[in-house]
Amino acid sequence: MTTEIFKAKPKINLKHGVVEMNHGAGGRATHQLVEQLFMPAFDNPWLAQAQDQASFQVEPSRLVMTTDSHVISPLFFPGGDIGSLAVYGTINDIAMAGAKPLYLSASFILEEGFALRELQKIVLSMAKAAREAHVAVITGDTKVVEKGKGDGVFITTTGIGAVPQHVNITHKLSPEDKIILSGFIGDHGIAVMSQRQNLQFNTDLISDSAPLHELTKTMFEAVPHLNCLRDPTRGGLAGTLNEWANHYDVGFFIDENAIPVRDAVRGACELLGLDPLYVANEGKLVTVCSASDAEKVLIAMKAHPLGKQAAVIGEVIADSNCFVQMKTIFGGTRIVDWLTGDQLPRIC
């Protein structure tokens, strides 16, 4: 009888409990949280090793590694939450190297007083996202900060991926190379913004948050050589193009009419004084390829659900100023500069 009592594992109260300091202290409470919440959610053989690290084998190949911290507010937004976003964000950074994502780690910084019920929702969403993307979360960490010193949950995910033999990103841009965008821009930023406390407006818009590695796989199967590839998250499409122009010492000329923007995003931007070119995306990619490959890449992208609205939006030009120029919908030409300051606070 006595031994039975000692063996009994008290359940943490996921329904009504909150995060307490001792959940991060490394003692029994930490152990319970890991065992009762994280382990069953992510459930995989590497995590089940229950060590401070996960041990795994990889086939000999070029590996990529990336890390991404997620501090979004609000934690739940139309089309996603911080959990799925933390998985997709890192998967996408891996995918943009043409790599297949293999494993993730997840590090949680929790604020004292945060409802365990909400945490569970986030963790389950994260696990679902990882499972659907066929990527395992194989190691992790939890820390707790005092109330008022965090904002509910911050999640950092680190990922490892392997680049298939045939994939080649040349990182060389020449005039007349084509710029291809995978679909509508600005959905994520505006969907998140619509939920902000001081700015609630009604929209059916949902975040485009999605894993892009299957789309990139299709693209590299069609054309193994792409010149560059990026998911335009913070800073939007304009940010990515400006970074490239500077890095590769070229200019870009894009056509505003060719850039897919939903009416709802256009309308919200009009109202809020924003420009969709700077609004964040979480499920879009932009690539540059040679003019001769553009058609093949475009067909491959359009054949994938996440690339249906893919479009050639412009081309590389020689420009020692490294400007991104745009033919406006009005027929005029202007510069598309970097984003200054913050268009929207804390969106990913």
Partner: peptide, 26 residues
């Protein structure tokens, strides 16, 4: 520059300097 404005015209997107910097340098 817009990142480090020394005068007010470089701050607002309606300011002459900011608008000229962002859009007009070509």
């Amino acid at each position: 520059t817009p990142e480090n404005p020394l005068g007010s015209c470089m701050v607002s997107s309606e300011g002459a300097c900011a608008a000229h910097y962002a859009y007009g340098r070509i």
